[in-house]
Amino acid sequence: MRKKLKIKENVGNGGLLKRTMIREFKKDSLARYSLYTLIGILLVVFIGALFIPRASYVDVNIIDQYLAPMTDGHILGTDNGGHDIIAMLLVSARNSLVIALAVTFITFVFGTILGTITAYYGGKVDMIIMRMTDFIMILPVLMIIIVLVTIVPKYNAGTLIILMSAFYWIGTMRLVRSRVLTESQRDYVKASKTSGTSDIKIMFREILPNITSLLIAEATLSFAGNIGLETGLSFLGFGLPAGTPSLGTMINEATNPETMTAMPWTWVPAAIVILIVVLSIIFVGQALRRVADQRQSV
């Protein structure tokens, strides 16, 4: 009996967030189509990339170099290594997205935990952690990452993820901190304290559930940012190592004036994919942010 009631009521409130989201997406057709596009792209990329043999994007085939679109069954042509552009797109997009996802996940978890702790305890703990983040904020992060990428031995995708995460958790942390600061002043936190609940439980079981929508919006938008960051680094040549193509390395073809003007099929598709993915994520993220801004507690 009790279990049944609980399930029914959970639909009522767990559903509250869900309902506001559905309403927001129904109202905002741009966000809705962005969401469909995003889901479509993700499915195609992750499923499609499974069927592409490693040899087809690692082995260099000079004979097929720079084939124009629609020749020899290469619908979008080939690049300077003679790889099919469509195959390259799928694999690159998968690599870029996986890296961006991993970085988002790490920065999100780390930033949320640290932001919550520093805001909840306040005082000296807050002082020390905030001065540390202030220090990291004023660093020229991109340059430091580039330098580290070149000097790290045994460089691979994992290293890149760690390097990027190490510097980009600040934003999430500051945002979470500001919200937890206001949230922890509310009376239900005091009530939990007088009810004898431990600090850890108050932070992660009482306060965090109340800012979930903000966290979702933040994670989405930082995901878009991280895609841009990774492709940017790869474009500059300091991103993914050779052998793991990225959307950024594909656009890197455009650094050569000849390919840029005469062979646009080598780099335009990748640029379009980045544009579509990042824009869709941002539109979806904005809709989610609006959900977060609504007072959903009442």
Partner: peptide
């Protein structure tokens, strides 16, 4: 605090909006 408890002024903000009445009362 088992013996000394508090009733708050703002009844809305003193109840966690994400918890059911059962969970709120069962907490202490």
């Amino acid at each position: 605090n088992k013996d000394v408890q508090m009733i708050f002024q703002d009844s809305l903000s003193s109840l966690n909006p994400r918890k059911t009445i059962y969970e709120i009362i069962a907490e202490p």
